[in-house]
């Protein structure tokens, strides 16, 4: 399967809103709040969205996911790089599932 009309519409829509925002920031530069409530709100959005993605996955998962999340965090804080942290997390969840199933 190459693609579908639905996927093309979704991707073009995502591309359009992303470009409009990026260009909008430049064009509206003199009218946008650089400080204050609205600026603080915009600044906090990405972190809040990512926290929303992670939290339910950890709560609904087994103890294996929680252990693996702790390992991922530990490796990332130590190495500051994506690959070792992700590999550590995946390995931890694999071993923890074997251990919990035993």
């Amino acid at each position: 399967m190459w693609t579908s009309p639905e996927a093309v519409i979704a991707i073009l829509g995502m591309a359009l809103v992303t470009f409009v925002i990026k260009a909008g920031g430049l064009l509206l530069a003199n009218r946008l709040p650089q400080h204050g409530f609205a600026a603080a709100w915009l600044k906090h959005i990405p972190g809040a969205v990512l926290a929303s993605l992670v939290a339910p996955a950890l709560v609904t998962g087994s103890a294996a996911e929680v252990i693996a999340a702790a390992v991922t965090t530990l490796v990332y804080v130590t190495t500051r790089s994506l690959f070792p942290a992700m590999a550590g997390g995946v390995l931890a969840v694999y071993l923890a599932r074997l251990w919990l199933a035993a």
Binding site: E6, G13, M14, L32, I45, V49
Partner: peptide, 21 residues
Amino acid sequence: IGPLILAALIINLRYLLLTAT
């Protein structure tokens, strides 16, 4: 389709602040 576009919009809103600089 709607949620995909809406999610992209909300997550990328921060670019307003980045490109303004």
